[in-house]
Each structure stands twice: as structure tokens, then as C-alpha cells.
């Protein structure tokens, strides 16, 4: 399978402060990749480099063989759709918000959406389960519903790549699972390439096919979850003692946390 995204010896960041150096990894088309790493390790900076919010100083990011820094904002928005962690709490109806996903396809002279745009938006609202909330305002929705609407909007952009920046960080486990199950379905059914920053290592291990572990502005480890999520890597990067096990059903790695008190107890025994 050809590589869909190639991050090529890239250097980027904020001059004088934080920098990402020598970032290299490839993502296959249709894969579900997670970016993990502690706070301040450079996950969001990497994301901003892909979306074009910060300039790449060296190297490049190729999306389907096209350098992303040469793409116009409109063209990029047709290829890459983004769902961020903070919700879009504007006083705008869910229906209108999801329709905004058609913006990259509209010319300056097209004021209103056409029938096809409406059909597409309705389809993705039904798929994500927010169709019944169509006439509600975004600011009236719960956090989980807002994220579902954001995913519907992202899908309406008909992207090749779905970028998610901690989409479940403010949600309870039931909503976290709901969102991630949906993303997994989209990844499989629509063959949508997904790249997601995620903090929860158990969720990362369970849902992602491939993980990129960041540390201090560098890629520390990359590969299948069982290759990346071992206790040595986690201890080194997160400076925390953990126990890793295999989930008996999914055969994916799961992580058990050990508090300092328990750890001291074990040592004393």
C-alpha cells in the first residue's frame, strides 16, 4: 500500500523557544494513527505543521505526493479536515455549522449552499447521530454532541485525511467510546485516513493501528501499538511506572497504573 502522508526530516516550531527536529514518519492510506506523548512533547506543534498554522523550517510534509506547504488554504481544506479538542460553542445552528464544511468548495460568488451540499450535510449528520439536533444552536449542545457535530462538519468537507486533536479529552468514558467507535467505523467504512492526537494510552492502544510516540520535540518510537506501548518506552517518556498487559479480547496492549504509595508498599514487601 502506498504511503499517504510522508513527514520528511521536518523541522518546525517557534523560533527562540520550542522546536521539533528531524521528524520522520509515514502513514498509510486508510490507516488509523495515534500521536501520543507527554504534555509539551510537540504533538500539537506537529499538528500545526500539518495544518499549515506554523511554518516548516526544514524538510516537508507530503500528502499524496504533494507538498502541503504549497497548497492553498482552500485546496488543503478539501483534503484535510480538522476536529479540535475545544468545542465550537458559537450561536450557530448545528445544520448551518455542518454545512460550513462545504465552504472549501464554494466560490466567492456562491452565497448559499446548493441541493447537493444539503444532501451531503444531512447524510453525515445522520451518520454521526446529530440530525435530530439540526435546528439547535451549537452552544446549547453537550460536549459530546458538539464533538459529534464537529465530526459531521469535518466529513462534509469530504477530506482524504481526518485530523483529530484530542477529540475526547473533555468527555466521560461512555462518550469517549462513542466518539472513538464512530471514528473507527468511518476509518473502516469510508477508508478515511485518520491521524489523532490522544492522551489516553489505553484508548490509543485499543483503537489505533499505528502509533507515533513523541518526546522532547522528537519521534521517540513508532510502530504498532504492541511495539510502542511497552513499559520501558512509557517509563522513559512519561517518567512513570506502569504495568502493560494484553487485552484478552482485542489482543491490544493495555496499561495499568501504579500509584507511588502502592509502589512503596511493593518495595517494602
Amino acid at each position: 500500500m502506498p504511503e499517504f502522508i510522508i513527514v520528511n526530516n521536518m523541522k518546525c516550531g517557534y523560533s527562540g523557544s520550542f522546536m521539533l527536529e528531524q521528524i520522520n514518519f509515514e502513514i498509510e492510506k486508510g490507516s488509523f494513527t495515534g500521536i501520543i506523548g507527554p504534555n509539551g512533547s510537540g504533538k500539537t506543534t506537529l499538528f500545526k505543521a500539518i495544518t499549515g498554522e506554523i511554518l516548516i523550517k526544514k524538510g516537508n510534509i507530503l500528502l499524496n505526493s504533494t507538498d502541503t506547504s504549497t497548497m492553498s488554504p482552500r485546496k488543503k481544506a478539501r483534503k484535510i479536515a480538522i476536529v479540535t479538542q475545544n468545542t465550537e460553542a458559537a450561536d450557530i445552528s448545528v445544520g448551518d455549522y455542518v454545512l460550513m464544511g462545504r465552504m472549501p468548495y464554494k466560490s466567492h460568488f456562491q452565497l448559499f449552499e446548493n441541493k447537493e451540499d444539503e444532501v451531503l450535510a444531512n447524510k453525515f449528520m445522520e451518520l454521526t447521530g446529530v440530525f435530530k439536533l439540526k435546528n439547535k444552536l451549537m452552544c446549547e449542545l453537550s460536549g459530546g454532541e458538539q464533538q459529534l457535530a464537529a465530526i459531521a462538519r469535518a466529513l462534509t468537507q469530504e477530506p482524504n485525511l481526518l485530523l483529530l486533536d484530542e477529540p475526547t479529552s473533555h468527555l466521560d468514558i461512555s462518550h469517549q467510546m462513542q466518539i472513538l467507535n464512530l471514528i473507527q467505523q468511518l476509518n473502516e467504512n469510508l477508508n478515511l485516513t485518520v491521524l489523532m492526537i490522544i492522551h489516553d494510552l489505553n484508548l490509543a492502544g485499543e483503537y489505533c493501528d499505528y502509533l507515533v510516540m513523541m518526546n522532547n520535540g522528537e519521534v521517540f518510537a513508532k510502530g504498532k501499538p504492541e511495539e510502542v506501548l511497552n513499559y520501558k518506552n512509557i517509563e522513559k517518556v512519561y517518567k512513570t511506572v506502569v504495568i502493560t498487559q494484553e487485552n484478552p479480547f482485542s489482543k491490544k496492549p493495555t496499561i495499568l497504573l501504579v500509584s507511588a504509595k502502592t509502589l512503596n508498599g511493593i518495595r517494602n514487601d
Binding site: 495544518t51 499549515g52 492553498s72 482552500r74 479540535t84 450557530i92 460550513m100 465552504m103 452565497l111
Partner: peptide, 24 residues
């Protein structure tokens, strides 16, 4: 101004989210 009515709508979500929707 009407040529920028849709970008103005996108700006209601904030500058960075408008950028994500392809607005210059």
C-alpha cells in the same frame, strides 16, 4: 463585503477554525 460573507460566517468560529475551513 458580500464577496466575503461566507468567510465572515466562518470567522464566527474563530480565526483558526476559519482557517481549517479553507478561509484565507
Amino acid at each position: 463585503t458580500y464577496l466575503f460573507a461566507n468567510p465572515l460566517n466562518a470567522l464566527r468560529l474563530g480565526e483558526s477554525k476559519a482557517k481549517h475551513l479553507g478561509v484565507n
